[in-house]
Design a protein around this nucleic acid. Structure first.
Lengths: 241, 241
DNA sequence: GTCTATAACAAGATAGAC
DNA sequence: GTCTATCTTGTTATAGAC
């Protein structure tokens, strides 16, 4: 059982009863989608089944028919999210060039924040609650994965290909730098004076994060040589945002 | 009127009626303290007046007597938090050395996450809701302050004392890197395999953030020279966390 | 499988005794 | 100023007609 708190998430056995199974899956998907948005904006406690039902365009009772309880629905939403959460780190493997690997990882995480901001918010919200439903995921599945990636980074360091004060905190801080563009989008948009964050803002965010982290690890960002401090130098990018 | 959504926050007129005024202030403070914790853990929607009352050790009706509505209490909590939020950036002034200024700023933000994690969580929670009560603060007070600090950083850049891709995003990412140790403390503790984040973890966090950002801005962290990539080099710090 | 109607309970808010 | 008792509303969850 790989799912959060034992909630059934399957979607496996839909061969016989194709029509019914399809309706099931379509409705489940609609509900999960709506629930993700509502939980993202209101948190677990602030979300209501009625609100989710309205967002999904279905009567409230259907949610209970498909998911039983509010908590089970929430667990299903979390489960949906976790898979994606881990996958971006695939970029970090020993045989790749550290600069390329880290840049790819950061850009993938930023892209994830751009495409699925709700997922990021639900995850963040669960962390701030104390992660009652994810304690296990964090302490085992995520922890093991981090250990593996830390081993890769330490390997690079031993070979003198990277210099990093603390690989684990490097990862924590990359997560933070990238997820902030989903979780704190309102704040960033307001400070930048734009209505919502668009491609330009995400590009600037990615460039900045990649540059900071690569230089921070003693690597040279592609096309951005590090000048000796003291040499005359303007702010680098053309965009104001 | 500088407060959020017009909620009275004062605490000014407590000279006559010293005793009564003192009780008022003490009780208000107890309630605000308890409310901060509960809002931090449950968000606005998930928090209940009864929960806050229990945490404060007072009957529920007293909260309404002092603050009127749940929203007004929430607004008062936010107001409390904002002042502190802005102050750390005092470190960033033109006449200081960029490396020292940024290092101080980062360490102050990390220290804030360590000492007031609840405040950080309430703020984060409000951002994820879409910041209905802080839209104005973000678009004006915070934005102006960011513009001022960006001007300082651009000044440094013009003098060739720092090299930064995008000063605004630099600030966003410093916020993220530092606040993550409050908002995502559960996650980080779980991955590190510790019960809660202690002084050792916060020290490692600060060292990593300062090193990454200073190097990222073409500056040399104190006592941590940047070796040429390619030279043999081990992971720098002694601690595993 | 779907959805209306309703039961059971928790929440915000207040009246009024102390 | 304080707090018990209560009003009212909104919420989760389910029973039972379709």
């Amino acid at each position: 059982m790989d799912s959060v708190s034992g909630a059934a998430v399957s979607g496996q056995d839909h061969d016989r009863e194709a029509v019914t199974g399809n309706i099931r899956q379509v409705n489940r998907e609609r509900i999960l989608q709506a629930a993700t948005t509502v939980f993202a904006d209101a948190g677990f406690g602030g979300a209501t089944m009625l609100g989710i039902a309205n967002a999904a365009g279905l009567p409230k009772a259907n949610l209970h028919y498909y998911f039983g309880t509010k908590q089970a629905l929430y667990a299903a939403v979390l489960d949906n999210i976790l898979t994606v959460w881990l996958d971006a780190a695939d970029a970090i493997v020993p045989e790749r060039d550290p600069a390329v690997a880290l840049a790819d990882y950061i850009r993938a995480k930023i892209e994830h924040s751009r495409r699925f901001p709700q997922a990021s918010k639900v995850f963040a919200s669960e962390m701030m609650r104390g992660a009652p439903l994810l304690k296990d995921f964090l302490a085992h599945r995520l922890r093991d994965r981090v250990d593996a990636k830390v081993a890769v980074i330490e390997g690079w360091a031993r070979q003198g290909r990277i210099v990093v004060p603390n690989p684990r905190h490097l990862l924590f801080q990359i997560w933070a730098m990238t997820q902030t563009y989903a979780d704190f989008a309102v704040q960033i948009a307001a400070v930048l004076g734009v209505e919502t964050l668009g491609p330009a803002e995400f590009a600037a965010a990615g460039d900045t994060a990649v540059t900071l982290i690569l230089r921070g690890c003693g690597l040279t960002p592609p096309g951005v040589p590090v000048p000796a401090p003291g040499s005359r130098q303007r702010v680098e990018t053309a965009t104001q945002n």
